[in-house]
């Protein structure tokens, strides 16, 4: 598979802060990547470096196997970082045309992309009259102008209202379905879980996990059990060979597993021991729980 971006041993030190510490990653064409990390974990700095706005301290990165200089490579990239930055006194259309000039592409796609993000009706309105959600959608239109090889989104739903978040999320899904490679930095973990195929987890600039989303979630899951006689239940189940540990929470037993165990199998096992369950629920740890576990 074609490599779009390769980062090797990247470091960035601000005066006292080691914002990015030995980050390496490879972005392959066609995948959707999520970068996760608490605030100040180095996500935006890493993106800033590959986008030519922050100077690296050491390490390397190359776009498209190093065949292009960074600023020429960026002409084939669409990126939105933090808040949408446009000229407030220009209209939506004028702003997009300026981006076309910078990217050295014809104006053909301007209307098409405005339509995609639902701003065609407002194309002659000045940017400063837009709501934050509209500004963010304009930023997406702008990032898509060149039909980019990769779309980089840094917190695209930050500060938006629920409708705005929904619109942006739907747009991302549409774009992902078209086969565009996406690199998405976000706090919204369910979003990442739904859209992304790969994740990178950062904390204090250090990579904690890198791999597929499925890989990160790969565990046997756990059971939520309830019975009239909880003590007997715990007694009985703690002898089962697949059980790792048991926690009691709100009158329920949370049973974590170390080997695969089906719900029916468990039910039968307990029934044989004369324990009747009032509740049996098999759950998988969510990305959120996995993430909190990793970063705490």
């Amino acid at each position: 598979m074609e490599t779009i971006l390769k980062i090797s041993n990247l470091h960035k030190k601000f005066k006292k802060v080691h914002a990015v510490n030995n980050v390496s990653l490879e972005i392959k064409k066609g995948n959707v990547y999520g970068i996760l990390g608490p605030n100040g974990s180095g996500k935006s700095t890493t993106l800033g470096i590959v986008l030519n706005v922050v100077n690296k301290t050491s390490g390397d990165f190359e776009w498209f196997d190093g065949s292009l200089s960074t600023h020429d490579a960026l002409k084939k990239v669409g990126a939105i970082i933090e808040r949408p930055n446009f000229y407030p006194y220009m209209t939506a259309e004028e702003n997009l045309k300026l981006v076309c000039k910078i990217k050295n592409i014809p104006f053909d796609k301007v209307n098409e992309k405005l339509e995609l993000v639902g701003l065609f009706d407002r194309k002659d309105s000045k940017f400063k009259t837009f709501s934050l959600g509209m500004k963010q959608r304009l930023a997406i239109a702008s990032a898509l102008l060149n039909d980019p090889e990769i779309l980089i989104l840094d917190e695209p739903t930050n500060g938006l209202d629920p409708q705005g978040i929904r619109q942006i999320r739907d747009l991302i899904k549409i774009i992902a379905n078209q086969g565009t490679t996406i690199l998405l930095a976000s706090h919204l973990l369910d979003e990442v879980e739904k859209v992304c195929s790969h994740v990178i987890v950062l904390r204090y600039g250090v990579t904690l996990y890198q791999g597929t989303v499925d890989g990160m979630l790969a565990n046997e899951g756990f059971f939520e059990l309830q019975s009239d006689n909880l003590d007997a239940l715990i007694q009985a189940i703690s002898n089962h060979e697949s059980v790792d540990k048991i926690e009691v929470q709100d009158g329920k037993a949370l049973v974590y597993l170390k080997a695969p165990l089906e719900a029916g199998e468990l039910n039968q096992y307990l029934f044989n021991k004369n324990i009747v369950l009032t509740q049996l629920l098999k759950r998988k740890t969510s990305l959120e729980e996995q993430f909190l576990k990793l970063t705490n």
Partner: peptide, 18 residues
């Protein structure tokens, strides 16, 4: 203005060199 609008950053991201 390029600083206050944040457009210097955006211009660079869009593929202009410094």
């Amino acid at each position: 203005n390029e600083f206050s609008y944040g457009t210097l950053k955006q211009n660079l991201i869009d593929g202009m060199s410094k």
